[in-house]
Simulated scan of single mutants.
Amino acid sequence: MSTSTIPAPVSGSGTPPRGRRPALPRGGGAAFGLGAAVIYMSLIVLIPLAAVVWRSQERGLGYFWEAVTTPDAWAALTLTVGASLVVAVINLVMGTIIAWVLVRDRFWGKGVIDTLIDLPFALPTIVAGLVLLALYGPSSPLGIDLAYARSGVVLALLFVTLPFVVRTVQPVLLELDPDMEQAGASLGASPLQVFRRIILPNLIPAMLSGTALAFARAMAEIGSVVLISGNLPFKTQVASVYIFGQIETDNPIGAAATSTVLLVVALVTLVALDLLQRWGSRHA
């Protein structure tokens, strides 16, 4: 009776031990790439933001607090954050629906609509504001006048933030395995249960990412709202227009203080989103 022998693993073979990742080579190219990325990010993002924060503290925390709590500054910040939250929630729902329709449905003109989604990225925002004022202004051909009202501000922000949720959810829908949905349906799950237990958990990270980006983008918008809002203090003046006005009136420290508040709100939003996504990954 013959016994078969199992060949011993060959030392130095190309297959790494199971459970261990092969070491990636490190060289001068990786160090150069890292250095170039850090320098570029510092010049374009970190140093300018640090300069704004430093300028806002030039006269101390007392002046900083006084600058951001004046009635006109506080009204502009409140309107900006509130309108951005409304826009983010609307984008969360409608952006997901639009992405679903573009991926799962077939209809005439689908390619045209898919192309138009990216129009706010390419169109100058001041042109968008002019178009919105012509369509929804005092002489609107549609009979809808939203000019110089907060609803007009929300409309302008919805226009410029339209692509964010759509373009983050769309690739996830394209990559979803239809076999999982078919398996759930074959086990007796209703379409609503399939969506809630299979599709939605995969979409939530992309939906939250797009919503956070839309929120941050809405807080920084100026071009599309400057015409339709009318820039009425305490009513329709957003923070970006207020900051521009402070620069024009030779108050750069006040402008930097208001900008710092917007920066802090945006950073808190993005950090909270990152923590939420990590928590979701651990519990997936």
Rank of each mutant, 00 (worst) to 15 (best):
L46A: 15
S4I: 11
P48E: 10
T69W: 04
P22F: 12
E58T: 15
Y63A: 15
T5R: 07
D105M: 12
P71L: 05
P48I: 14
R59Q: 12
I6T: 14
V86H: 02
L46Y: 14
V81F: 02
S4W: 09
G109K: 12
I97E: 00
S11V: 14
A37C: 04
A83D: 00
A31S: 10
P7E: 09
T96A: 05
T5Q: 09
G35H: 03
A30N: 09
R55V: 08
P25Q: 09
T96F: 06
V45Q: 05
V93L: 06
A67K: 11
L49C: 12
L43G: 09
G109H: 11
V93S: 03
D72W: 07
P48S: 12
R21T: 11
F32E: 00
V45G: 04
I44L: 14
S13G: 13
L79Q: 00
A8K: 08
A23V: 15
T96P: 05
W100K: 05
V103F: 05
Q57S: 12
G12F: 04
R20L: 14
P17M: 04
K110E: 05
P48A: 11
A73I: 09
S13N: 14
L61T: 07
V86D: 00
G14A: 14
G19C: 05
S42Q: 08
F107Q: 02
D72A: 13
A73T: 11
L24V: 10
G14Y: 10
A75N: 06
F107A: 01
I97R: 02
V53Y: 07
L49I: 13
W74V: 08
G62F: 10
T69M: 06
I39L: 15
